[in-house]
């Protein structure tokens, strides 16, 4: 395997304004055709499905925890100061005791600070699992949110912490433009936006570009299911100075292969070549943008 051609290994996030645009397909195939060892991080921790395609069978799991309160009911006098402070109903005073709801707690530590009797201590609570594995030249890092937990950003942060600095990384972001996406984009060097040429795709692309601009992140576009009517999308990309780095045709073979859980780049070599080219273009873009400081 060739040495990295880059001075500094970079981090590329693959995102899209909405679900179903082919974001995971792009991240996977880009990693498969990257031409050198690469890390692929599944940050869609609510619905991680990168490994449905990679099929690493030897995954090493580690726990992700957050501090939540624990109440010594002997000391609690039911004053309710904790429940008044808590904005998330993670702790509630009922009668002469306090009930803790770890799944709603955001881990701010406020209740322990305000408890006048010192009845509250904090303990780690599992909110997710990070698994790492290897599939050929791809090092997989998968985050998975514990069922019933709604705190996505800390699990994504834990995924990022597993990334090795010496290898380039591709991060498959969750759909949308909300907090989990912002958590994924922190410390990334480039944002690859996957869209389709429909008004939905364009509308959601605009939201994602607005987010990239706010975070000062250079970005490029992959057009999926490109049909005949690309004028609106290309016009927008030109006006925003967004390079279109890859355009995948509206080919039902792609849908068929993906529905079986197979990797497009391996099943159809002509698409493999397109992703290898995308990898090259990204390396050039990143070279021009200067890489991670």
């Amino acid at each position: 395997m060739a040495e990295s051609t880059l001075e500094k290994p970079f981090r590329i996030a693959v995102a899209s304004g909405k679900g179903g645009t082919g974001k995971t397909t792009v991240a996977l195939n880009l990693a498969a055709m990257f031409g050198e060892p690469v890390q692929l991080a599944d940050c869609d921790v609510e619905e991680p499905n990168v490994n449905l395609f990679l099929r690493c069978d030897q995954l090493t799991p580690t726990e992700v925890t957050m501090l939540v309160p624990e109440v010594d009911q002997q000391r609690c006098n039911g004053c309710g100061a904790c429940g008044e402070l808590c904005q998330f109903r993670g702790i509630v005073a009922v009668g002469t005791r306090a009930l803790v709801f770890p799944e709603l707690c955001h881990g701010c530590g406020g209740c322990a600070l305000v408890c006048p009797t010192g009845a509250i201590t904090e303990r780690p609570h599992r909110i997710g699992t990070i698994s790492t594995g290897q599939s050929g030249a791809i090092r997989l890092i998968e985050g998975r949110l514990e069922v019933g937990v709604s705190l996505v950003p800390p699990v994504i942060r834990a995924v990022r912490e597993q990334l090795q600095d010496e290898l380039p990384a591709i991060l498959d972001a969750p759909p949308g433009t909300s907090c989990p996406v912002v958590a994924t984009l922190r410390e990334c060097d480039y944002l690859l936006l996957v869209t389709d040429p429909t008004p939905f795709g364009l509308h959601d692309l605009k939201l994602a570009v607005a987010l990239a601009r706010e975070l000062n992140l250079p970005c490029g576009v992959v057009v999926n299911r490109a049909g005949e009517d690309l004028v609106g999308l290309y016009g927008y990309c030109r006006s925003e100075n967004l390079p279109v780095l890859l355009s995948l045709p509206d080919d039902r073979q792609i849908a068929e292969i993906t529905s079986r859980g197979d990797l497009l780049a391996h099943a159809l070599p002509e698409y493999g070549l397109m992703f290898a080219e995308l990898a090259e273009k990204l390396k050039q873009e990143l070279g021009a943008a200067g890489g991670r400081p």
Partner: peptide, 13 residues
């Protein structure tokens, strides 16, 4: 404002 979780601890302290 993007990173603020809205927990209110700073406001209280």
């Amino acid at each position: 404002p993007v990173a603020c979780e809205g927990c209110g601890v700073c406001h209280r302290l």
